[in-house]
Design a protein around this nucleic acid. Structure first.
Lengths: 186, 186, 186, 186
DNA sequence: TATGAATGAGCGTTCATTCAT
DNA sequence: GATGAATGAACGCTCATTCAT
């Protein structure tokens, strides 16, 4: 009887890590298969192509964010500051990683011109993130300003993770966090 | 003298464009050669490897910036605002491109963990940029703050170019410009 | 089980033949693959480089000699003359071939300065051969002389195979056999 | 006015050295050109192909041997022993080299099956050598035996140079010299 | 004569993918 | 479900050779 060595979820989780570290084009199906303890051929029982796999990786990230991270911003039981803080921490844990950077940013820069299916998901992620931040900033700022502040925070975060990767330092990222919190104050 | 179809400079310029659009790993030597009107093999008269070529592309960008762009910030004949404005425009023209994004940011995210030689040059570029901005902000802010503002501007710019690439819109980038100018005021 | 067109052993055997005929550098992976009925790329399931393949070819020859040919010299159930005769014939069948010459000699001359891993195996082969001959000559000669006679026989054999290749004649080789046998007599 | 940087002779001498060290197929036209201080393209003013060049290298060796080395064997002004001794030394200086081995032996094993033009010259060389040795041995042995002894000496020499190359030792070669001299005695 | 840019075929190797078992 | 052998195209790179200057 066929034994199942891994679940689709495990593959997605491990693949996310490998893609984040090595980038899309520089990661081979072999790399991914080995990372999850399968042989190359077995991979194709779960995903019919490298593109499909990457798309599903991105989608699983999106689902996690939309279901468990962004909703925090709309949880009216918590104070605004706490919502922001918690959300940022959960967000970071999901998409950032000091060594490999941000799977979202990495994938945008590397693939967005080449793979429209990736673009869709990536846009959903960033739109969800923007909306969540906009919502929080709306408590203390005019709607138009709130949106701009949200975008500004996101851009800074992505820039910060880039600097962190380049210099091997994390303070860019911390400064960014502080400014994002500061902006919550009227 | 043998017939010369291209100059090394042309190769660097065209290669920059191809790398920016397609990324490092997804660009083949064939792509590059065709872009300059040569055959793959002929390329190796100018560069002895893809890595060397990319490094020289990055170095040529660095030299241009260090010699012609960053010095603008230190030109005491011009008012500060004008220095900032001119420098930002020249900088953008050099490293940004709406379709392909920023060669610096793209290359950091895709290769910095893999190619230490690239990292060096990329660090020089970002350090030069940071210093130039810090210098300008120093006129109106305390030294420590000036540095933070410079870094913030850079991070925003890199984030903005990412958003521009993802959504095909350029207003992120314009907002970023406005904020960078605003920060010049005490 | 996937369809298997060849075994690793078959590859080694066929590759030995191709290397012997065409030499190491003049043999392409394509040549080798076609000789065993595979495509170039498929070869890399069995060997991860041309060097590795050649090394394994040489090692398989070494193992065959050490396990099945040289032991004949030490088989005290047989008369000395018969041991020598049988061993030489088995040896010839293993490493010589009128058209391509001697895989050992060919590879020494072509690669020994360039590939230390090959050198090791080739030395083991020649040392084994020298020892076996020395052992046989020891029955009728003083130890020091026995070693010299062994070396002399080996050198003659390698020279003979070279002459045979150059002139397309095999009598050099036969003379060599006769002299090697003659030397057994006190 | 065109300056001539090298003579054809120099090219042949330098190329001989490179071919001896690196073998025929593993030597590139670039290697050869650099060894003589020319650029690749300039080489083709002297030789219209790599094959032609190698053939001329071998021919120049042949001419040297036929004109200056083998005649020593027929010089009736000198005692036989001295003729042999002088000839062997001159021969060694011409075709052997401890590091690279024997250009004749190397080239036979690597190319004789592939390049008939090389074979011709190589046969001439070995025939000339055989004749010279046969002539000397004829003084003390019956004609038929003299020929066999000549061949035996040659084979040993080629085998000895192979062993020397494999083990990095030169005593094989010296033993060979001693035996070749010994055989001169009735 | 010497150059060096250009060619085009071929090299060793890697890859995403297929599929019989 | 998992294997691993096989494919065929593509990769980065090297090569012998050509030829305008």
């Amino acid at each position: 009887m066929p034994i199942q060595k891994v679940t689709k979820e495990e593959i997605l989780t491990k693949s996310l890590e490998v893609f984040r570290h090595r980038g899309y084009h520089n990661t081979s199906m072999n790399d991914l298969a080995h990372a999850v303890g399968l042989l190359k051929g077995s991979f194709y029982h779960y995903f019919d192509s490298k593109e499909t796999l990457m798309k599903e990786v991105l989608m699983s990230v999106n689902i996690l964010l939309q279901e468990e991270v962004f909703p925090i911003a709309y949880n009216s039981n918590l104070p605004i500051q706490e919502r922001m803080e918690t959300m940022l921490k959960r967000f970071s844990k999901t998409v950032f990683n000091k060594e490999g950077g941000c799977i979202v940013g990495n994938t945008i820069l590397e693939t967005v011109n080449l793979y429209p299916q990736f673009k869709e998901v990536l846009q959903e992620i960033l739109t969800g993130w923007t909306n969540a931040l906009t919502h929080l900033y709306s408590y203390t700022h005019a709607p138009e300003n709130a949106k701009k502040l949200a975008e500004q925070s996101i851009m800074e975060y992505e820039g910060a993770i880039m600097m962190a990767k380049l210099y091997g330092e994390s303070y860019y990222y911390k400064d960014c966090y502080i400014r994002t919190m500061e902006r919550l104050k009227a």
